[in-house]
Design a protein around this nucleic acid. Structure first.
Lengths: 225, 225
DNA sequence: GATTTTTCTCTGGTATACAAAAAACCAGAT
DNA sequence: ATCTGGTTTTTTGTATACCAGAGAAAAATC
């Protein structure tokens, strides 16, 4: 029966709570949480009003965000964007290192030449002249490793954790001298993956990421009390 | 004023959505999801009615459970307990291996003699006569490793992932011959941690857990379509 | 004026009512 | 008997209304 037209499923996921969740999540992640004069309070009612809807779907979105540790709902007091402590962030980086390291290990021996080249292109090119460009490329490099693991769960959980780290990472990362070190690290990692050395690749990635942990601990600017 | 009755604080973290969340979560995790005649549907109203409350807090609990991947809320169709595919479970075990391996690595060099003994007690004693006892001890052993890492995030995320694996693990684990292998693995792991060999401990834990992955893939009884 | 008590407001928590979409049902035509 | 089409029922999504606790402001007390 190949004659029938075979249309796509057309899954209409048009629920408000879903859209609000995404909007709020993005807004929170892009906000400079650690700046002094940022209002960390979220008001259900105000949000609902601004979006022209009722509180119910907003609340459901907030519950979800709380479950992802991005906000904190204090009963009968208020909803607040969570500002992670240096310890929490550092620990999250450790988890991230664990996951990323496993991803690199898995990537070995199952990547095409083409994929390695993509990875190299992202991670090794010199971006030191521009801090933002470097930062972006850095993220992409680590994302790509997760992807090359071909393990969807690893990728998904890795990205979730990264989302929690990201605001703090932006806060701490201000030192351009780190760039060159990072690029040479990346080159080594690419090399290990390409030459199918899982143990080495895993170790390199782990140490590379744990270096970020040390760095964050060292340069953390304690803006909050 | 010692004359007044001075009651206890009555720790009132008593929000319904929180309690419902916990109740439902436990119920779902203990349920044999993979059995043929298990009703995978959850009815908001029925749950609310059974608990004698309104739908609202039930829904918020459900949103949270969905965010944890334990259930799926299909818009305007219904709420269903999620039955993970073998591939998803296997991938989750890989993530778990990554985290647990890092935990073992961190545990090295920061555990007391006492803690090592606790770990040994849990993981090495012969429990092969009783499958359930063995299974329970096995879980405890891995929990303990997460704990000894002294990294709260590692522990928390590790346990979250384990919760997602657990139903499938129970489903697949039926082979008692695995027990002795497991115990000797555990002994080696304890030994590596005790003698402060991070690299070795990490490798042992990883391979031990990845063996579970292979095992699950092999013995998976495909009860669903 | 300082401290305690009271009140009042603000905010999230819960219940209920209504709307909309999917699924089940049913009757008539073929 | 089966298919088709509309209709009813069921179930979720959203809106609204009300409740209760926490904290601030105001009032009373010393």
């Amino acid at each position: 029966m190949d004659a029938s037209i075979n249309l796509e499923p057309l899954r209409q996921t048009f629920t408000l709570k879903e859209r609000i969740y995404q909007v709020l999540r993005e807004a929170i992640l892009e906000m400079d949480v650690y700046s002094k004069n940022t209002d960390l309070r979220l008001d259900e009612r105000k949000i609902a009003q601004q979006l022209g809807i009722s509180r119910t779907p907003v609340r459901e979105a907030l519950v979800r965000l709380e479950n992802e540790n991005l906000i904190e709902i204090k009963s009968r007091i208020g909803v607040f964007i969570k500002k992670r402590s240096i310890d929490e962030v550092a620990e999250l980086v450790v988890v991230w290192a664990a996951i990323e390291s496993m991803a690199a290990r898995l990537a070995c021996g199952q990547v095409s030449q083409e994929e390695v080249e993509e990875l190299e292109l992202i991670g090794v090119k010199d971006t030191s002249e521009n801090q933002d460009v470097y930062s972006e490329a850095n993220i992409m490099f680590h994302r790509k490793i997760l992807e090359l693991s071909k393990c969807n769960m690893l990728k998904k959980i890795g990205e979730d954790i990264f989302a929690q780290i990201e605001p703090a990472r932006r806060h701490a990362m201000r030192d351009p001298t780190r760039t060159e070190q990072s690029i040479s690290d990346h080159a080594e990692i690419v090399n290990a993956i390409q030459s199918n050395q899982p143990e080495k690749a895993a170790n390199l990635v782990r140490e590379h990421t744990l270096r970020l942990e040390k760095y964050i601990r060292k340069t953390w600017k304690n803006l909050d009390t």
